[in-house]
Amino acid sequence: MSETPEQFTFDFHKEKAEILRASDDLQIKIGDFAGPLDLLLFVIRQEQANIFDIPIARITEKYLEYIQVMKKLDIAVAADFLVMAAQLIEIKSKMLLPRDPLAADDEEAEDPRQELVDRLLEYEKFKTAAGMLYERSTIEQAVFHRGPIETDGESAEVDATVFDLLTVFQQMIARRADEIKMEIEREEISLADMIKNLKRRIFEEKELSLMRFFEEMRSKQELVTAFIAVLEIVRTEAVRLTQKQTFGDVILRSVTTDAH
């Protein structure tokens, strides 16, 4: 028997993992197992075992063999795979223990495998659901529609990131740079006051345009304070940032009403 390395690939259309013998191609794709439950299901299928009556000793042995192969092939075996190995061994040892003779007969002793079986069945449903999503996305890729164009104002709300915030802020700074000709000393507003002010505005107006809020600031220092206040309020309060288009204005919105 030649020592050809085994190649593992996953094909949703076959709905199970498959081992291919790779002749000269050393690319091993064992990492394609989505996780320990996936590998375990594969082993059970491979051994043609009944999922409701798993021969735990044999399956554990095979499972550990696969982990060994993964290690030998220098694939970093994720800790989760080892956790599953430990659980299998634990179940195996529980199965070896003699039944408690004093235990009531009518109360059937819990099968140590039960929890694992439940998890496997639940997991397999999600795996099938993943396959369904895969097929849907494949079909969707054959359908084309008009993409958003720059002038589309009514596009979907998407969550704005900190970078979007920064972009808005930078645009403001750039605009300010031309406008501010002379610095006049003003009474400085503290961060605490700014946050209080911002909170009140969001509460009153429900939706606050970040661009507009920044525009009200009278100096670079106030702008910076306002920016920090926005970051702070997003971090601590039930406030959501939304943006209608990429590089567009960011809207601050109170979400306290649907927080419960």
Binding site: F10, D32, A34, G35, D38, F126, K127, A129, A130, G131, M132, L133, Y134, S137, T138
Partner: peptide, 12 residues
Amino acid sequence: KLSLASLETLAV
């Protein structure tokens, strides 16, 4: 395409 792991996570 999304990876198998991502598809599973998305399904969950």
